[in-house]
């Protein structure tokens, strides 16, 4: 629905619940206008803090500085040099067709979530400070977004209006290792609006693939893929 662009203000003020936030972040992944607007509205909202200044107790400074001395900053998001694509190469070529149809820009989320244990694995990924999303518009098949967090070490796929796999087939997910190997990462449960945490360690994955496989899944991806979510292009 068109109305979703109207949520920029509420989103910028954190005036959304977790479900609205996740949905809007999927939209942000593919709407440059909303990304720009959210950034400017957040900047404006931050200025309101000029009207509520309060000096914290001096002990807080000590606690903060003691706290950071025990943690190192996260590594930067590096531009990975293209690896030699072994048997995975044809997959990439086929995926390029999909990519031309529409790959949303990967984007970076500066916001973070509380560390309490009440978050699901999917929420931890979606709310991680280093979460990146790549959205792929599959046309009549629907829309899928993969969000990956290196710090959580997991990836989450969220689908919208996803057409069912052909009779007797399933959608299977794959994590691409830096060496170019495709590692099975689980079968997509049926349903058009789905969210699933991929199996396996996604921290070093350079891409996520989505293929159609015979029921029960395969050990190697069947080409061409339905979609490729290329995180090596993410910044």
């Amino acid at each position: 629905m068109n109305d979703i662009h109207q949520l920029t203000g509420a989103y910028a003020l954190d005036a959304v619940d977790d479900i609205e936030r996740a949905r809007f972040e999927q939209h942000l992944a593919e709407c440059e206008d909303c990304r720009t607007e959210v950034a400017s509205l957040r900047e404006a909202a931050g200025l309101l803090s000029e009207t509520t200044l309060a000096t914290p107790p001096p002990a807080l400074r000590d606690s903060v500085l003691a706290g950071i001395s025990q943690v190192r900053p996260l590594p930067p998001v590096v531009e990975r040099t293209p690896v030699v694509q072994r048997r995975w190469f044809p997959f990439l070529v086929a995926a390029a067709v999909v990519a031309i149809l529409g790959v949303g820009a990967a984007f970076w989320q500066p916001w973070t979530a509380s560390q309490d244990g009440s978050l699901t694995a999917a929420e931890r990924v979606l709310n991680a400070p280093d979460a990146h999303s790549v959205a792929v518009d599959l046309g009549k098949t629907g829309k899928a977004t993969v969000t990956l967090s290196e710090s959580v070490g997991k990836a989450v796929i969220t689908t919208e209006d996803m057409a069912p796999a052909p009779e007797g087939k399933v959608f299977e997910l794959w994590l691409q290792s830096p060496e170019g190997d495709m590692v099975p990462a689980g079968l997509m449960p049926p349903g058009e609006d789905n969210q699933m945490v991929l199996e396996g360690d996604a921290a070093s994955a350079t891409a996520v693939g989505l293929t159609v496989e015979p029921e029960g899944g395969s050990d190697e991806p069947t080409l061409p893929p339905v979609a490729l979510f290329d995180f090596s292009q993410a910044t």
Binding site: P56, R72, L74
Partner: peptide, 18 residues
């Protein structure tokens, strides 16, 4: 508020690269 600020600065330190 102190707890919130402490957590926020720790997060900011960790994700400052980003």
């Amino acid at each position: 508020a102190e707890e919130v600020v402490q957590e926020a600065y720790l997060d900011a330190w960790r994700s400052s690269t980003r």
